[in-house]
């Protein structure tokens, strides 16, 4: 295996495009190294992105959103007060990935590009309407986060393409987001179900909402029906019931070592209800 440390994304993309064998990009390495060591993946070329300038930066964009470098580990997101104030749901999703030690390495983009439907940081990004910038042999393009994973372990990235940045939109006023996941233990598990809710209020009424579910389908899914169930409501009991029904209806899970179809479906509704309540109270400016 050859180890590369390009200094620009263009060089990284060129290296990947010209490689004849199997290529992997390395940021935090918390997925790649596990696969490498288990012998599941034997890359010929490993391209470390951490020497590229700016990959460790968290910056406010001109329009008031956020630009997050591809090598920013989870622990830095949690330590960034302004980012946490804007997008607590996005940050708490990332902070649920693994242990304190994993947080020292794991990144949002790595979590996204690993392609797992159970990735804890992805529902929050999808609900937030985050986008990624992709650098490839033919230049750059920008796509919504939800377009990256296509099936477990697979992404829509073409050969030679590398995610070069992640962008969160401006939070704006009266907004709130939240992410909850269900695991059997209190820490260290892969999500059995995850749910993120992002919403905006006008007074007590929800005017905008996005709901994303994890681990209930081959990819993290955006569920417009769940959002529709609460838009125009004050998150009253009828809205919650409609939200739960929509979340459950959107589930297309499998039974595996981590959970059954029935359990995942039922808990998806429970988490949607609980996450919506947290997002709602955050939008109201209440502590939650």
């Amino acid at each position: 295996m050859r180890y590369h440390t390009p200094s620009t994304f263009e060089d990284a993309a060129r290296l990947a495009a010209s490689a004849s064998g199997l290529t992997r990009f390395l940021a935090g390495g918390t997925d790649v190294l596990v696969q490498l060591r288990a012998g599941m993946v034997q890359p010929d070329d490993l391209i470390d992105l951490k020497k590229i300038s700016g990959v460790d930066a968290i910056e406010r964009t001109e329009d008031g959103g956020w630009h997050i470098g591809v090598a920013v580990p989870g622990i830095r997101l949690g330590g960034h007060a302004d980012l946490c104030a804007d997008w607590p749901g996005v940050v708490e999703g990332m902070e649920l990935v693994g242990s304190t030690q994993i947080q020292g390495r794991a990144t949002l983009v790595g979590n996204l590009c690993n392609g797992s439907p159970a990735a804890d940081s992805v529902p929050g990004l999808v609900a937030a309407g985050a986008t990624v910038t992709i650098t490839g042999p033919n230049g750059t393009r920008t796509v919504p986060v939800e377009d990256i994973p296509v099936s477990p372990g697979k992404t829509s990235l073409a050969a030679g393409e590398v995610v070069s940045a992640i962008t969160l939109p401006p939070r704006g006023s009266n907004g709130g987001d939240a992410y909850l996941r269900f695991i059997p233990r209190t820490e260290m598990d892969i999500a059995v179900v995850g749910c993120a809710v992002n919403l905006r209020l006008d007074g007590d009424t929800i005017t905008e909402a996005r709901v994303a579910l994890g681990a209930v389908a081959p990819t993290v899914v955006l569920v417009p029906e769940a959002a529709d169930a609460i838009i125009g409501t004050t998150l009253d009991d009828a809205a919650i019931a409609a939200l739960v029904a929509a979340a459950e209806a959107a589930c297309n899970p499998i039974t595996d070592k981590r959970g059954t179809v029935e359990f995942r479906t039922e808990v998806a509704g429970v988490l949607a209800k609980r996450a919506a309540r947290i997002a709602y109270s955050r939008a109201k400016g209440e502590n939650a």
């Binding site: 390495g29 918390t30 190294l33 596990v34 242990s99 030690q101 994993i102 020292g104």
Partner: peptide, 8 residues
């Protein structure tokens, strides 16, 4: 703080 098994 990191796991040295997940660092090259």
């Amino acid at each position: 703080l990191v796991c040295s098994c997940l660092v090259l």
